[in-house]
Amino acid sequence: MATSTAARSMLFRYASPATFYPLAGRLWPWFAAAAVVLALAGLAIGLLVAPTDATQGDAYRIIFIHVPAAWMSMFIYLVMAFYAVLTLGFNTRLSAMMMRSLAPTGAMFTFVALWTGALWGKPTWGTWWVWDARLTSELILFFLYLGFIALQSAIDDTRRADRAGALVALVGAVNVPIIYFSVKWWNTLHQGASVSLTRAPSMARDMLLGMLLMAIACWMYSIAVALVRVRALIVERERDAAWLREAGAAD
């Protein structure tokens, strides 16, 4: 009981921009360094060690960025929805800022997943794009990110922008399963499984290792970028606060 209250007071302590700002400043270089090291290791294994795929040749190697990007695009939306709940439920300013700092990274990863998917699809499937269920729902996820960013940047009042953005992120998160299943059923009725993404043979160990390293690297990168961005947002919003001027003098 005592530990849980201590943990909770720690959490609440860092929910304040004044305490989180220096913490984020100390943490982000570590996350950035981890991202670089892991990405180098992942790429080395992926491009040099992992064997050539028997059916796809070397074109498969794009999965070392494609799969982590696709994972991150979905995961970041979930994290945004989590911060949206905190924003609406506890009215914390920092969670709204975190939500806002994550959105561009999520949109970027969604775009990378679509882009690299097209680059992989051309040599493997012979086409840049198919209206497959996964591709289509990833595309709609991209639109959801765009809608969120467009709404937030169109509202000048920060409190309203935060709360409106949180609501739209939540509505989107609730809708994602509905969208995914409707697209899936639509796809299976329309064109049958001419191309299947799920028949991938079990992966060689080195392939899996490279992919996991890259996934963790992307994760670390997302955290680092979000922390840098949230620091910028804190400075922008709290520019008149006394603590910030003191922190600025200390830096």
């Binding site: 709609i140 639109f143 765009l146 709404l151 739209v168 989107g172 409707s182």
Partner: peptide
């Protein structure tokens, strides 16, 4: 959500259309 915003005419479709995809399908 876009009440009283200058860009609401453009914003509403961008926010709403992706969410309406299941109905269309």
């Amino acid at each position: 959500l876009t009440l009283g915003l200058r860009a609401s005419g453009v914003l509403v479709p961008v926010i709403v259309l992706p969410l309406e995809v299941p109905v269309l399908i």
